[in-house]
Nucleic acid binder design. Structure first.
Lengths: 207, 207
DNA sequence: AAATAATTCAACCATATGGTTATATTTTGT
DNA sequence: ACAAAATATAACCATATGGTTGAATTATTT
């Protein structure tokens, strides 16, 4: 064998990565421990050696998924930059982020829906608190008449809707618009190209 | 007992309704036949008497869920009315529809994601085909310069995002914006009040 | 080299779950 | 009244699944 007693052994990571894929694709109840073991190419007992139980493994995956939704970008929202520039930066970076973690939003939403209690505090601390300054900034700019005349919460909801929903709705969009995978990628490329302007336009009062 | 040999016996409906609730809340794998039976206040074997298997019962619920997403409203999209009025009508009616079937979008999306093949044709026929005339109308109005300069598919994606996402994201919004159930209802009320104008504004070219 | 920790596997266990069967009662069409 | 369908229950079955155990092998520390 090779390096043991590291902080994260190679097998431990392989297991986690496999678990992440399976849980994100099928949800807690849809996932099978055997499938995770197979995908990680290890024996099932290794799962329990490292992660005690399905629940424990799931919670780690769940936590990481939430954290992935709000990396450096959260801090970006709290920088002391003008709103328009902030919106543009956020749009581009968040779209790229979701694009490379496109299974996460639906996964998190589905699990939150089944069990809103679990991870509630975690969510509140990791996301809820971090966006408060941004909401505050929206309120101030609204007072100055620089934004559309809507509560900050509504502006946020609209921005997040435009950014995230197409990924969550991907299977439906692909079917009803008859897009293969490559065409869906182009569909997202197109969004990347116009959404920064578009989101500024639907949030700020510029003409 | 009472009326038998009706098209839909009372117990059959009770079972279906219970199944609908449980499947929509927990998904195919998360649902327990016993829980459905309990909720319908009947014995488990009644489930199989009427619906053979979990799969069969699920498929019926799944189908109905998809159909509920596109009732009379689909036809509304194909009426021969001016685009602006159509957008306003659709926004109001679709928001009301989703509001009264708020579990359906996340349910359908989650199941579509786990198994995109199942129901693909059904989805295509029930939704895909029915929105084509609307897409066509968007394209024509775009040519005339009456809309934002985006492909019809993008306009549709944006409209649907704004309408549907807040319901799908409800558990997250409630946590991070700290809204109780009543406040979330107000949040939706607010959307109902401004979204018709807003969607017209972000879709059409009216200053 | 000895001790300890990490890794792997096969076999096994307990339970939950979907599904079945046998049987009995009630309702309804004719 | 009779037959057929509907309704209902309890007991049961087979299987899948999460989880455990124990023994063996390999690596790491000292």
């Amino acid at each position: 064998m090779k390096g043991k007693r590291e902080e994260q052994s190679s097998t431990e990571l392989k297991i986690f990565e496999a678990a992440r894929e399976v849980f994100q694709a099928k949800g807690l109840e849809g996932a099978r421990m055997q499938e995770i073991a197979d995908k990680a190419k290890i024996n099932k007992s290794m799962l329990h050696y490292y992660y005690r139980s399905k629940e424990k493994l799931f919670e780690k995956v769940y936590q990481l998924s939430i954290i992935r939704l709000i990396p450096q970008i959260a801090s970006l929202l709290n920088e002391d930059t003008p709103l328009e520039m902030k919106l543009r930066n956020f749009t581009v970076k968040y779209l790229e982020l979701i694009r490379h973690n496109s299974d996460i939003p639906l996964f998190v939403l589905h699990e939150m829906n089944k069990n809103p209690g679990r991870m509630k505090n975690f969510m509140l601390n990791e996301i809820g608190k971090k966006i408060q300054p941004f909401l505050q900034q929206l309120r101030e700019e609204r007072k100055k008449g620089n934004t559309v005349d809507l509560p900050a919460e509504q502006m946020l909801a609209n921005i997040m809707s435009l950014l995230v929903f197409p990924f969550i709705g991907r299977p439906v969009f692909q079917v009803i618009l008859n897009l293969d995978d490559s065409e869906f990628e182009q569909f997202i490329d197109k969004r990347l190209s116009y959404l920064p302007d578009y989101i500024v336009r639907v949030t700020l009062n510029k003409t």
